[in-house]
């Protein structure tokens, strides 16, 4: 009898594994295999010269050496980081504020559901379409310049946004902010709603101000979600591509200041299909992403150690 019972327990576990099969299989095929292949190919010289395939020839870590010696990797990494920060700071600030308002029971916001939908909407638009829209809005003869010149009379000749380093970066950051703050708000709000209301009530009884409640209760308890948001946003930021690519027509102009790491990768695997260098760059990015995630994770769990 006993044995039979134990058998039943084991068979439940089995179901777990069976239901995991689709994920594992898909993961292996679409993630793990390409990942291993990428690492493998990063040690080869492998590109197209005209219509002729060069390689693959094994060249050891030559691709990595070229990448660090010749390429402007640091510059592009810095570009990526700057544009990510430009977008992320307002994003986390606005999201925290909105999340606090939406989850505050005393405020009793009307039509909160409606606003939640509205702030999420920009994320539903395809990033490339969004970029095209901004490109048209801010172009030399676009409506923003018309507004600044003819209605507000701030400037007397068109300001060419896409030839200005700061303007281009700010636009990229602003678009990323617009696209992602709704998503972040929803995540943070979920975290805030998960905080025990009795803590708020106790604070209220003790006469705490809303600011104190936010800094002393909401923020510390929100920490795990906040860390998650930072990590995912950072990884997303490292992969920034479609917005600046479309906005600058793939050039990363002006003066390569809006060129992100993935746009650089795209340049390698474009015309010459340089999978060796592309692979090397991808591996470096993979390592950076891994390290950054670890650092943020360790820092956030520092207290518990």
């Amino acid at each position: 009898m006993k044995q039979a019972k134990r058998g039943k327990v084991v068979s439940f576990n089995k179901w777990g594994y069976i239901f995991l099969i689709p994920f594992i299989a898909v993961y292996c095929f679409f993630q793990l295999v390409p990942l291993v292949m990428t690492i493998y190919y990063s040690f080869f010289e492998n590109y197209m010269q005209g219509m002729t395939q060069i390689g693959p020839n094994f060249i050891g870590i030559q691709n990595y050496i070229t990448l660090f010696q010749k390429g402007d990797m640091l510059k592009y990494a810095l570009n990526t980081l700057i544009m990510w920060i430009i977008g992320f700071i307002p994003q986390i600030f606005v999201s925290l504020l909105l999340g606090a308002w939406f989850s505050d029971t005393r405020l009793r916001l009307r039509a909160a559901g409606f606003y939640k939908v509205v702030i999420y909407l920009p994320n539903l638009i395809m990033a490339s379409a969004f970029s095209m829209l901004f490109f048209a809005l801010f172009s030399e003869s676009g409506p923003i310049n018309a507004l600044l010149m003819n209605t507000l009379h701030v400037i007397n000749k068109p300001f060419i946004f896409f030839q200005d380093v700061a303007a281009t970066r700010i636009l990229v950051g602003f678009m990323n902010f617009l696209m992602w703050f709704g998503n972040t708000t929803i995540l943070l709000m979920a975290g805030m709603l998960g905080i025990d209301p009795s803590l708020y009530e106790a604070a209220e009884v003790d006469g705490a101000t809303p600011t104190q409640v936010f800094w002393r209760i909401t923020l510390p308890l929100l920490r795990p979600i906040l860390v998650y948001v930072v990590i995912t946003s950072l990884i997303g930021g490292l992969q920034m591509f479609d917005v600046p690519q479309i906005l600058t027509n793939g050039k990363g102009s002006p003066a390569n200041s809006a060129m992100t790491l993935i746009m650089w990768l795209n340049r390698h695997i474009g015309t010459s299909k340089n999978f060796g260098m592309g692979g090397a760059l991808s591996v470096v990015l993979f390592i950076i992403t891994g390290v950054l995630s670890m650092v943020v994770y360790k820092l956030s769990n520092g207290k518990e150690d």
Binding site: Q49, G71, P254, A255, N256, T271, S272
Partner: peptide
């Protein structure tokens, strides 16, 4: 936005990145 030397650097960089040969 940049001086002529930097512009040349940017030009060479882009061409070299596009054509490794």
């Amino acid at each position: 936005k940049v001086d002529e030397d930097t512009a040349w650097d940017n030009f060479y960089t882009q061409v070299e990145e596009t054509y490794p040969e």
